[in-house]
């Protein structure tokens, strides 16, 4: 188990612990830097997720298995995914430009931050010199495991904090519901209203032909073809259009469709053939070959 390897790497500063630390540290820092410089918010979110996972590994190296798991499950799994969903709703817009609009903001910020980091690091190194070798083996064994030890602390020493945090969670949930509630200003449209509306507007009133009717492919990005061979734009989802990933119409496919519609047999490349039929409405019959 990976956990054992990492656990054995904790005792004393042997090479295993060092390697884990350095690898994870590099990943974490690069993830943070990536978050900073990404143009698209989704990329930033994924970089943050990367940092959080490496942090989880570091927790494992620090004799905190429970916390490492919780990090991955709660933080990366829930919180970061929440971020991604919100990015999806909020969408892309011009604020993602990396050009700095406030004068005197970027470089002083970098300078101050660098100074801040330098001070902190100096203080830490200064303060932690000559610290004894740490180990949590005893503490973890005291209650029969890390989880049990944390549980004992939460439910005895920090019970009040626990209760208050639970109240906080409830409040947060309520708050989110409240904040995102959209008051309906007009009466909800009934099915009758929707139906009327659909038939009054120009355009196709009924269901669009599903992908596959005279289809040659069943990929979502391939448009359906009308009997005259022109593609149906509505059969491809909107975002794909915006992204420009709609597959172009295959000329051979349109010829095939045309000939089929004209009642000719078409011999496919793999040798199968389709028998023509006059009866277009009946669809495949029992005697048709597949």
């Amino acid at each position: 188990m990976n956990l054992d390897v990492i656990a054995s790497a904790q005792v004393g500063s042997n090479g295993g612990a060092e390697i884990v630390f350095w690898v994870c540290a590099v990943i974490a820092v690069s993830g943070a830097v990536g978050m900073l410089v990404s143009r698209k918010p989704v990329h930033s979110a994924l970089f943050v997720a990367m940092t959080m996972v490496s942090l989880a590994v570091l927790y494992l190296a620090l004799d905190a298995p429970f916390l490492g798991m919780v990090q991955i499950i709660v933080y990366t799994g829930a919180v970061m995914m929440l971020f991604v969903f919100v990015i999806m709703i909020v969408g892309v817009d011009a604020s993602d430009s990396l050009v700095e609009t406030i004068r005197g903001q970027r470089w002083p910020a970098i300078a101050f931050t660098a100074g801040f980091a330098a001070l902190l690091i100096g203080a830490i190194v200064n303060g932690l010199q000559g610290a004894p070798d740490p180990s949590l083996a005893l503490a973890n064994a005291a209650d029969g495991g890390n989880v049990q030890g944390i549980a004992r602390l939460i439910f005895t020493k920090y019970a009040l904090a626990f209760e208050i945090t639970s109240a906080l969670l409830i409040t947060a949930a309520l708050g989110a519901v409240l904040l995102t509630h959209r008051e309906r200003h007009t009466p909800k449209a009934t099915q009758e209203d929707l139906s009327r509306k659909r038939f009054r507007e120009p355009g196709h009133p009924g269901n669009l032909p599903p992908a596959g009717t005279y289809a040659r492919h069943n990929a979502v990005d391939t448009p359906a073809l009308l009997p005259d061979g022109s593609p149906v734009p509505e059969s491809v989802p909107g975002p794909l259009h915006e992204r420009g990933s709609v597959r172009p119409v295959n000329a051979g496919a349109t010829d095939e469709v045309r000939s089929l519609a004209g009642g000719h047999t078409v011999i496919t490349e793999d040798g199968g053939h389709v028998q023509q039929s006059d009866d277009f409405d009946n669809g495949p019959e029992a005697g048709d070959k597949p």
Binding site: L67, I150, Y158, A172
Partner: peptide, 17 residues
Amino acid sequence: QTIAFFVMTVAAAEVVV
């Protein structure tokens, strides 16, 4: 570690709101 645990919880709630 307990404190870190609580920090995570609170951070989650904060992200929601």
